[in-house]
Structure formats: structure tokens, C-alpha cells
Write a protein that binds this DNA or RNA. Structure first.
Lengths: 155, 155
DNA sequence: AAGCAATATTTGTCAATGTCAAGTTTTCCG
DNA sequence: CGGAAAACTTGACATTGACAAATATTGCTT
């Protein structure tokens, strides 16, 4: 039975992705060495970095957590002086979270490490392959987006 | 300040990967819907699927866990009838883990779901882009391998 | 062959992560 | 005004994982 191009693709991708994800996850752990922060905590810092402050609900949403989990996470960020809670003055039900300057510094440090790490393997690829990778990943992301809009339409 | 091709690549890749990882992780959770298994438990099933049985040490190694964490994980697999422990008769210090037939079935079910899922987005990409993706990811993996051997040489 | 270091695994203890259900406070609508 | 809805927090609980100490076997050395 001859393997179609599409089947071959699915097989290759199924071998490649787990290894790449594994490497990147290990790298994400490594980039936190020496900082007293767990990966989830760093995820939160990264989400909080851009906006000046964020309601709990949005934070949970962006982290893919329940609001309850987000609450405990922020509890710890607070205890570690990485963030502050603020009561929204307009709608007093909502609690907004803002990075402390220390939290901001930590996030920036990790951004720098990440940049270096990405540059390190980028240098080891040919310019052609870099272009292939960007093109392929963009197309993949587009396929994901396509799938998501389609599954939303069904509702 | 003009951006070099390499800098542009690093920037793009830093935007693309988090989104793709996020999607794939969500998908990995989704593929377990209805099965009473957590992601880590499924990881263990997948590792145990190939070999007939595996010493605890190797299992821990392949999962990237401490042996102690592996022990508790296997405890739960046992309780759920997904695997069995066997004492190695040659070296009686080592404990080997083997999938139960139920565990094997579960793993196969997830393999099928994964295959379908990968096929679903593969269909939404052009053949050209599929080829770019494979080429790019392979080169990326080679760069990772290159980095790893180099850091080992330093020791 | 006895003794002791090394190996493989388990157990104890602890913190973080996350879920669901129930409770609190504030807002909004009829 | 009164009650449903919204935004969070809290309580109770299971899983995950780490590190250090304990246990059981093996294998080397004298």
C-alpha cells in the first residue's frame, strides 16, 4: 500500500513535534534557573507584562485556567512581591492585577534569555531553512485558525 | 535601525511558537476527553506502549521526571488498572512496568484521535507549505541536536 | 567469603497546580 | 426595591513534582 504525500506528512509531523515541544519545554524550564519562579508563574508574568493591569477574569482566560486557579496563582505572585491587586473603581466587583517593578524586571530578564536562546539555534540554521520554517509554521497556524472558526460556526 | 534577516526570524518565531504550542497543548487535553486519564498519565502510557516492559529508571528518564515522581505516577496507573509492576528476575532491584491490555487499548484510542487531528489540519495546508514545514522543523531539530552535543562537549 | 560502596526503587514531607462547588460582594434590570 | 447575574474568593480535594532519607540488591575488594 503506497503512502500518499499527506499520510507521509502526518507521520513526519507526528514524530517531529513531540521532540521539538519537549526541547522547548525543557528550555523554558532552564531559562528560569536561578529565578525563584515556576513556569506557571512566569506565564502569568508574561501575560501581565504588556497591559498596565488586567482583570482576574481576563488573566484566567489568557492562561487557560479557571478563575479559581488564577486567584491562587496571583496569591503567590503577591506573596513573592511580583504583582499587586487593585480594585477597579468603576466596577467594584472586578479585581485588577498589575506587575510590580520587580515582576517587570523578572519578565524582562526572561525575555532577554529567550531572545538569546532563540538566536542560538537560529544561527545554526541556513537562511533558506529559516524561511521554510517561518512559512510552514505560519501556514500551520492559519490551519489551526481555520479549524477553530469552523468549529465555532457549528455552535 | 534596520532589522537583519536573522533578527526578523527570531522575532517571528517567538510569536509563532507560543501560539502553536498553546494550540497543541489544548489539543492534547482535548484528545483525553471522556477518558479518565490526565495528560501525564497518558504520556506514561505512550512511553510504555512500544517496549514490552520498562524499568522504572528508564521510564523516569524518558518522561523527564525524578524516579520518585515516576513511582507515584505508576502507583496511580496501577490503581486504575492501566499497568502492572513486575520484579526483574535477573536483577531483583529493578522493577519493570508493563501496560495492561486496558492501558494498551487506551493508548491506541489516543493514537487514533491524534492521527485524525493531525490529518484535519494537514488537509487545510497546501502541499508546498506542508513540505516547507517538514523541512523547517527538521532543520530546527538538527539545530537543537547540534546545540546539545556542543554543550555536552564542554563537560 | 565478609564487608561495604554503588544501584534501583520506594517513602516521607512539602509546595504548587488545578478542579469543582459553595459563598461573598457588587451591579444591573424589571 | 428585590432578585438574578457577574466577578471573585474560599474550601475541600487530587495530582504532580521535588528533595532527602530509608530499603533492598548487587557487586567489588580484600
Amino acid at each position: 500500500m503506497a503512502e500518499t504525500e499527506l499520510e507521509a506528512f502526518v507521520n513526519s509531523i507526528q514524530k517531529l513535534f513531540p521532540r521539538i515541544m519537549r526541547y522547548l519545554e525543557d528550555e523554558a524550564t532552564r531559562e528560569l534557573i536561578g529565578l525563584e519562579v515556576t513556569p506557571s508563574q512566569m506565564n502569568a508574568l508574561v501575560v501581565l507584562y504588556g497591559p498596565s493591569n488586567l482583570p482576574m477574569g481576563e488573566l484566567a482566560e489568557q492562561l487557560g485556567l479557571t478563575e479559581s486557579a488564577a486567584t491562587r496563582l496571583v496569591d503567590r505572585l503577591l506573596r513573592m512581591n511580583l504583582a499587586r491587586r487593585e480594585r477597579d473603581e468603576v466596577d467594584r466587583r472586578v479585581v485588577r492585577v498589575r506587575l510590580s517593578s520587580y515582576g517587570r524586571q523578572l519578565a524582562e530578564l526572561v525575555f532577554d534569555r529567550r531572545q538569546e536562546q532563540f538566536a542560538r539555534f537560529a544561527e545554526r540554521m541556513s537562511a533558506d531553512n529559516r524561511q521554510h520554517l517561518i512559512t510552514g509554521l505560519s501556514a500551520l497556524l492559519a490551519a489551526f485558525a481555520d479549524l477553530e472558526t469552523q468549529s465555532k460556526e457549528k455552535r
